[in-house]
Lab assay of single mutants.
Amino acid sequence: MATDAALRRLLRLHRTEIAVAVDSAFPLLHALADHDVVPEDKFQETLHLKEKEGCPQAFHALLSWLLTQDSTAILDFWRVLFKDYNLERYGRLQPILDSFPKDVDLSQPRKGRKPPAVPKALVPPPRLPTKRKASEEARAAAPAALTPRGTASPGSQLKAKPPKKPESSAEQQRLPLGNGIQTMSASVQRAVAMSSGDVPGARGAVEGILIQQVFESGGSKKCIQVGGEFYTPSKFEDSGSGKNKARSSSGPKPLVRAKGAQGAAPGGGEARLGQQGSVPAPLALPSDPQLHQKNEDECAVCRDGGELICCDGCPRAFHLACLSPPLREIPSGTWRCSSCLQATVQEVQPRAEEPRPQEPPVETPLPPGLRSAGEEVRGPPGEPLAGMDTTLVYKHLPAPPSAAPLPGLDSSALHPLLCVGPEGQQNLAPGARCGVCGDGTDVLRCTHCAAAFHWRCHFPAGTSRPGTGLRCRSCSGDVTPAPVEGVLAPSPARLAPGPAKDDTASHEPALH
C-alpha cells in the first residue's frame, strides 16, 4: 500500500513536468492505449483535445483523470512512461527518471493478473537440437547421386540401376557391380574402391570401400567397409609401409569409374585409389579445392560414357583410347591431361624469361682521411668538412668512354686558381681547403699541381719545410723540376691526363 501511495503522490508531483515534456501524442498516448491504461473513449478524447488546445494541455488533463483511477493503472502508467522508446522521444523525461526514488519498484506484477504457477513436473524439458533432418536429407541425396545420367557406350558392359529405396527402410541396399565389389548404403556420403591386398588381414578377392557413415545421432565417422563389417581407420595404420605414394595433400579420389555407378572395369580391371599401398590413418579432407572437384561422367573428346580416367587438374575425364597418344593402361600417381600440362608450361616460361635485376654498384670503404676530388669540390665554400675520421664509401662506377685530351690552356685561363699578391707571391683563392683534413686555415699551394695542403698533414714525420718551391706529398717525388717562383700557373702540358701512381689516385688537379 505504501508503494501505491508513493506512486500516486509522484504522479501528482510530476504531472506538469510530464505534460510539458510530452510534445507529441505518439508514441506515449498510443502505448498507453495498447497496454489498456487508457480506454478507447479517453484516447479519442485526448486526441481531440490535443487538436484543440495543444499537446501539453491534453496530457495534463489525461494525467488528472489518471489520478482518479486505481493503483494498478497508475503503476502501469509509470512502466509505459519509462520505456526506452519514450525516453528517446521525450528527452525531458530523463530528469524525472533520475529523480525517481530508488525504493519504488516498478517491476512488480499487476494485482489480480498474476499467472498461475505451473508445477515443475509438468514443464517439459527442453529438446536438444538434433541433426536428424540433415541425416534424412543426406539419405535422400545419396540415391540421386547414384542414378545414371545416360546410357553407357556399346563397348562398356557395366550397366546398373540402383533400385529405389524407401527412406523408412534401415537395411542396406547393395548393387552387384562384379568382381566382388559392393556399394555402400544410402547413408554413405562418398565411396572409393580399395584393393584388398592393401588391407592387412583381408582374405580372398574381397575389396573394401572407404566410406563416411552418417549415424542417426547426427555425428559422422569415417571407416572402411569390408564385406558386411565396418573398420575404423586406426586398424589399417601401417607405419612400416615404404610404398606409400601419396598425392599432394591428398584424400582418396576415384580416378576410374563407370558411368552411372562406381566400380571396377569389366574384364577384371581393378579400380585404383589416388594413392597406392596401405590406407593412410588420417582421412581428413584435403585443403586443395581441386581434389574436391567432381569430374564429368562423359569423355571430353567423344562425349560418351564408359570407363573413364579423370584428370587431377580439371573436371574433365577421358577414354584411354581417346587420348593423344592413347594409353594402354592407367598410369600410377597423379595424372593430368594435356591442357593442364600446357597451362603449367605456359606459367613457367614467362618466369624464366623475366630479366634479372641489375646488381647495385659495389661499394668499397675508403680509409679515414681520404676523399675523392669530387667530394672536395662539392663541399660548401668557406666551411670545414665535419666528421673527417668517419669511413667514407667510394662507389665503383662504370668507366666513362675515352675522351680526347684536354686542349692547351693559356696562363690567363688559370687566373682564378691563384691570386698574385703585391710581391708576386701566389695566394690561395677563397674557399681553398686541405685535401686531407678539410680545413682551409693557413693552407699552402703546391707549386707543381696548384693543390691546397697543410705541410703537417702531408709530411707528418716532421720534415723541414723548404723556403721556396713548396710541393705536396703527391708531387714531391716527381722528377720534373719545380717552376720558378712567381709564375702564375704550371705549363698547360702538365694538365694533360697521364698515368698516375697508386698513392696519388685520389689527388687529381682540382679547380677552386
Rank of each mutant, 00 (worst) to 15 (best):
D4V: 03
A5T: 10
A6P: 02
L10F: 07
L11R: 02
R12G: 04
L13F: 11
H14W: 03
T16K: 01
S24W: 01
S24R: 03
F26M: 00
F26P: 01
F26C: 01
F26T: 04
L28V: 02
L28T: 05
A31T: 00
A31C: 01
L32W: 00
D36I: 02
V38Y: 05
E40G: 01
D41Y: 15
Q44P: 01
Q44L: 06
E45G: 02
T46K: 00
L49S: 00
L49D: 00
L49T: 00
K52D: 05
C55F: 08
F59E: 05
H60N: 02
L63D: 00
S64E: 00
W65N: 03
L66T: 01
L66P: 03
L66V: 02
L67K: 03
L67M: 05
Q69K: 02
Q69H: 01
Q69P: 02
Q69D: 03
S71P: 00
S71H: 14
D76E: 02
D76R: 04
L81T: 03
K83N: 02
D84Q: 03
R92Q: 04
R92C: 04
L93D: 01
P95W: 05
I96G: 00
D98R: 05
D105L: 06
Q108H: 01
R110L: 14
R110E: 11
G112T: 14
P115C: 09
P116Y: 12
P116R: 04
P119Q: 10
P119I: 15
V123I: 12
V123A: 08
P124N: 07
P125Y: 07
T130S: 14
K131H: 02
K131P: 02
R132Y: 03
R132C: 01
R139Q: 14
A140M: 03
A140L: 12
A141D: 13
A142N: 04
P143V: 09
A144F: 13
L146Q: 11
P148E: 15
T151R: 07
G155F: 15
L158R: 03
A160C: 11
K161I: 13
P162S: 04
P162T: 05
K164V: 06
S168D: 03
S168M: 15
S168T: 11
E171C: 15
Q172W: 15
Q172C: 12
Q173N: 15
R174A: 07
L175K: 07
L177M: 15
G178M: 15
N179I: 12
G180N: 13
Q182H: 15
S185E: 03
A186T: 08
A186M: 02
V188Y: 15
V192D: 05
A193G: 07
M194Y: 06
V206E: 03
V206H: 09
G208R: 02
I209R: 09
L210Q: 02
L210G: 05
Q213I: 00
S217D: 15
G219P: 05
G219A: 12
S220G: 07
K221A: 00
Q225E: 12
G228F: 03
E229R: 02
Y231S: 04
S234Q: 13
K235F: 07
F236R: 04
E237R: 05
G240F: 09
G240P: 07
K243G: 10
R247T: 08
R247H: 00
S248M: 10
S249L: 06
S249W: 15
S250V: 11
P252S: 10
L255G: 13
R257K: 08
A258G: 09
K259T: 09
A261W: 14
G263R: 07
G263H: 03
G263W: 13
G263E: 14
A264W: 15
A265E: 09
G268M: 12
G268V: 10
G269F: 14
E270Q: 12
A271H: 15
R272G: 08
R272C: 14
